[in-house]
Write a protein that binds this DNA or RNA. Structure first.
Lengths: 349, 349
DNA sequence: GGTAGGTTTTTGATTGATCAAATTCGGGGA
DNA sequence: TCCCCGAATTTGATCAATCAAAAACCTACC
């Protein structure tokens, strides 16, 4: 069956760089160049080789390539178990976009799991030592994060979705790392301004306490807008509330704030907003955060995070690092989210 | 700097099978055997080699291994963009479990995306041709699915979460493929029986139309339980409703069915159930489907899919196929979901 | 003591692509 | 006409592991 191992296309065997070369009447290196350095080939040769590649259905072996180049063209992403029903979507969208965009650049995303920081560092070691992945995309930042340091020390490219925590700079020994984040403050500020324009003045803020920073950030925008509108601190304090993230918690908070005279709510998450919406009924105006499908379904105005852009940046950042430009400090960005106005943006009656 | 390329442990270079061999005073093949066929080594030699592996920190190169064995120890999973806010969680949990369990078996999960069937077949070709992945785990089945055929014809192991559609058998040329699914009918039957026990008799069904089968399946369980309880067909028809999946749709349906005399609802998804809960208020009893975090947060009784088990089966199935046992027909399973009772299971007052 | 038979270990070859260096090819310029 | 130089292409070696087959090593039995 395989006694005819000559250069023509052997049915059973998958095409290799050599078989394609034979088919196009060139050497294997020329085929390799056609894929990696097309400009080195004479236009005519290039065309011929590409044609041969095309109709042999050749796909180059990632393993062989990786072996020679010490590159895998794979990015690692840690998949966490689900936490919040509605908000989990955010990272889901991020991951999908990252994966889709990576494919466009010839990269793929590989998952790993870890239930502790130490476990994650072990994964780092296993994944990088064999060069199974080229870079990491981290999304769940927390205080005293060991991961940046490990990756920096081992020279592994990585990008972070989520700004560093205050006080983390010292941990990160080789200086600041590249990160991108959503300017939650700008988002809630826009939401608050929007409600102010609709005539509301007693705008309550329903925030959450998680690890801290994200919730605080979103509060800041509301606070600033309210202060800018001349609402005195005392009143602002009465309109401010914090609790765990969740639908029920949002409903409770909304009831409390309604008693305090609120006519509209800016919420730090769609979960909270859905709760507020159900508790406050059709009278009050509500704006959520994340623009989840649930928000769209319920006609809930919400602040939309530009996740596509964030994913694109993360990809671009790690690719740049992989391609040698190791000084990516200073390229960090803060993205401004967009307010999506829907039926729940009711004017003050 | 690297003029000393002899066999002893060179600091800068990562350990290879040869460097470890030199360190342990054996040949490279012996090191390979220590990892892949430990029983072939003399206990004493094995111990010495393992020690060398251990303190050199050696990890074997996935690429080199893959090249020789034509195995990658990677599973492929298609990551779709999010559709429904609440229900999307189901697959998220499935994926996380799959990934975590796979790691336990030395496998990893790689993502790919595709926005059409043709695109997915192209991905199949690209991923399998280079043996970048060993198997596929498919989750979103639909009518006239070309994927089974392609994978079967090309001898690629795969497992399916979701039963084949009626009429699909002919499409799949080499006979039935292995699949696992949740017995939605059993789930809604249990939910209905539970509500009947609480004294309800006019139990409405809020179902959805998607691609068809899943929704129908879930309706069947309700229908059977109701028929078993002696509710006449005419009345059943009045208590039955179908619409698109979503919170608002669920609320609308609940209102309609309340008018028809319903005192309790069995819903085909948590989204619908959340809607029904909001529309029907605290009087009616509601049971959802999927046991999403949202259901837990709202105190919504729901039918819990045993996703861990499904993921475990899918993994076991593809691993068995990879390890040669190509006759996996007949190993398909239908898992019985569990009813989780919460506050929304109110007795008939 | 020699050798058959089994176990343990080693050597040689291979996987597919790419880097580095060598070779061929063409067009000016002397 | 010959030689040199740059562009285009080819050859040789290599990446790190594993398979297949050969070699070394025992043990036991005639």
């Amino acid at each position: 069956m395989d006694q005819d191992t000559t250069h023509s296309a052997v049915p059973g065997h998958r095409p290799t760089v050599s078989s394609v070369a034979a088919m196009a009447g060139v050497s294997r290196q020329t085929v390799s160049n056609a894929l990696n350095n097309p400009e080195r080939l004479q236009p005519e040769t290039l065309k011929r080789v590409l044609a041969a590649i095309d109709d042999s259905g050749y796909v180059r072996s990632a393993a062989a390539r990786q072996m020679r180049t010490a590159r895998s063209s794979v990015l690692a992403y840690r998949l966490d178990p689900i936490r919040d029903g509605i908000g989990g979507i955010v990272l889901d969208t991020f991951l999908h976009t990252l994966s889709a965009q990576a494919e466009g650049q010839g990269y793929r995303v590989m998952l790993y799991t870890a239930d502790s920081d130490e476990a994650e560092l072990r994964q780092f070691a296993a994944l990088t030592q064999t060069r199974a992945v080229d870079a990491f995309v981290l999304v769940d930042t927390h205080r005293d994060d060991q991961r940046y340091r490990w990756l920096s020390e081992n020279g592994v490219p990585y990008a972070v979705f989520g700004r560093p925590w205050p006080g983390d700079e010292e941990t990160d020994d080789d200086g600041a790392h590249a990160w991108i984040d959503i300017d939650g403050s700008a988002g809630t500020a826009a939401a608050t301004a929007h409600l102010l324009e609709l005539g509301h003045r007693n705008i309550g803020f329903i925030g959450y306490l998680h690890d801290g920073a994200t919730g605080d950030d979103r509060r800041r925008g509301w606070e600033a807008s309210m202060a800018g509108a001349g609402v005195p601190p005392r009143q602002r304090r009465a309109l401010d509330s914090s609790q765990r993230d969740g639908i029920l918690e949002g409903a409770d908070a909304a009831r409390r704030l309604l008693d305090a005279g609120a006519t509209a709510f800016v919420c730090a998450s769609d979960s909270l907003a859905v709760g507020a919406l159900s508790a406050a009924g059709p009278e009050a105006a509500v704006v959520g955060f994340d623009d989840s499908p649930t928000a769209a379904a319920l006609g809930l105005s919400s602040v939309r995070q530009p996740l596509e852009e964030a994913a694109g940046w993360a990809l671009g950042s790690v690719l740049a690092q992989i391609d040698g430009a190791h000084s990516t400090s200073g390229t960090s960005r803060l993205l401004v989210p967009q307010l999506v106005v829907r039926a729940s943006s009711r004017p003050l009656s």
